[in-house]
Amino acid sequence: MLNHKALSAVITLMECESFQEAATILKMSPAAFSRHIKAAEDYAGFRLFMRGRTAVRPTGPGEVFIRHAQNLHRAIARFDQATHQIQQGAQGGLLRVACGPLTTLTLIAPALREASRRFPSLRFRVHVRATFEPMLALKRGEIDLFVGDLTHTPLIDGIEVRVVEKRSVIFVAAPGHPLLRGGPYGLPEILRFPLLSPFLHRHWRNTVTKALGDDETAKRLVERIPAVECDDYALLLDLIDDSTYVCGGMRENFAEGLASGKLHEINVAGQIPWNISVVRQNQEVSDALEAVWASLVGRHDQ
């Protein structure tokens, strides 16, 4: 049977359609990742992927093979999760949460405080980074819950997704920036200046590329952004004092700077939507996970 790394490699490659992106997600070197794909193809006895000019996609037999691999991967994850719950107890143990950098204060902290009051022995492991691939992590059983940006909300067997907020990105700059004179400005005008931003994953890049015209010029422009990529908004806000930068995010990220006059909002034409979603596996949910989920969804329903 395929080992765990080869199994993860073929599943991740089908999701990402890119050797480099899949290897990065799995924290493998390109050479090691390619060896695992070759091992899977040797095991299958046929070619699993076609290497195209712009993307890697499964062959017909490869897609069937990988669907079965996904089922096996989910079964292993459920087994591991059930074993963990038996060891720790459904009302104690460890709750693993992944989230983007924009949700920690407004959503994550209140939900965890409420859960810790109900389950005093519960421990939390919170991963705050925009580079997280939530669907893959959930399917692999690496996390129990994701809260953050999903530019699209796909329907996947065994995965439950709730959009709890729909927001729009704003752009800000320091006083004296040329974009603070007049407007409204479109994305091509804004992105002439160096952008500060958290990690821009594939779906965000596709969204921006389409907004810029979806041509070769747009693709080249998107390849060059951001000038500084960091999931720590404290660092981005320090850097924004340089009047050449613009920064994108949620209004609350810039609330203090906007109130003090250190930052000003750029007059933007149109909107870039941002979906704040909560995502979990909907099988064998613990009482603690159910409590955190209800808290997050309940805030939206109120």
Rank of each mutant, 00 (worst) to 15 (best):
L2E: 15
N3F: 09
A6R: 02
L7D: 01
L7H: 08
A9Y: 00
I11Y: 15
M14L: 13
C16M: 05
Q20D: 15
Q20G: 15
A23S: 07
A23Y: 03
L26Q: 05
L26W: 01
K27C: 14
A32F: 03
I37K: 03
I37E: 00
K38V: 09
A44K: 11
L48C: 14
R53L: 08
G62S: 09
E63C: 02
I66S: 03
H68S: 11
Q70P: 07
N71W: 13
N71P: 12
L72V: 12
H73L: 12
A82T: 10
T83M: 02
H84F: 12
H84K: 13
I86Q: 12
Q88S: 11
Q88L: 00
G89D: 08
A90H: 10
L95S: 11
V97D: 13
C99W: 00
C99S: 12
G100C: 10
P101Q: 07
L105I: 08
L107K: 00
L107R: 03
L112Y: 02
R113C: 12
S116M: 13
R118E: 07
P120T: 08
S121E: 15
F124K: 04
H127P: 02
R129E: 08
A130R: 07
P134S: 11
L138T: 06
D144P: 08
L145M: 14
F146L: 02
V147M: 10
P154C: 05
I156P: 02
D157C: 13
V161N: 01
R162Q: 13
V164I: 15
V164S: 12
K166C: 04
R167W: 09
V169S: 03
H177C: 10
L179Y: 06
L179E: 06
P184V: 02
Y185S: 00
L191G: 01
R192D: 13
P198W: 04
L200G: 15
L200R: 06
H201P: 14
W204H: 14
W204C: 13
K210Q: 11
D215P: 05
E216Y: 04
T217A: 14
A218E: 10
A218F: 12
K219C: 05
L221Q: 11
P226D: 12
P226I: 06
A227H: 09
E229M: 11
Y233W: 06
L239N: 04
D241M: 09
S243D: 14
C247N: 05
G248P: 00
M250S: 14
M250F: 05
R251M: 02
E252C: 09
L258V: 01
K262A: 09
N267G: 02
G270K: 07
Q271L: 14
I272Q: 08
Q281N: 15
W293P: 01
S295G: 11
G298I: 06
G298R: 03
G298H: 01
R299N: 15
